[in-house]
Amino acid sequence: MIYTSDLRDRIFNLLESQSLAVLATQKDGQSYANLVAFAVSDNLQTMIFATSRSTRKFSNIQSNSLVALLADNRLNRPADLKDALAVTAIGKAMEANGAEKEKLSSMYLDKHPHMSDFISSPNQALIRVNVSKYIVVSNFQRVLEMNVDE
């Protein structure tokens, strides 16, 4: 059971515990979903991931920056219905550059040290998502929302 009093901690712990999230993007009315290795800031306001500039997701973000990310801790067992926690982040994606890119890269590599070669390739973009809201699903159907952009 997620209570409102520990909602923030539960979101943070879940996002810290998962290395991959499903990214949802859209272009010309067609939605698209794929997995990304992500990291989250301590204040939950920023999520980051890296992608090649030639990917479909990058192209989609260029065309529509409103994205969603979903991370969860399901184990593909019947008890998931009871125990799994899913967190959806809704926000706006943009490529990070300059000093900001450096700062965010270091935050990203803290979580994914093995990705250092991956993100240093010149064709890679580091994408920053400014999260406006988290939607947390526990107990199969209990849904709480939390705004973080204030």
Partner: peptide
């Protein structure tokens, strides 16, 4: 009353 987070809003409860 117990302290609670002021930012959480419910969308669906069980």
């Amino acid at each position: 009353p117990p302290k609670r987070s002021d930012k959480a809003t419910p969308r669906q409860l069980v």
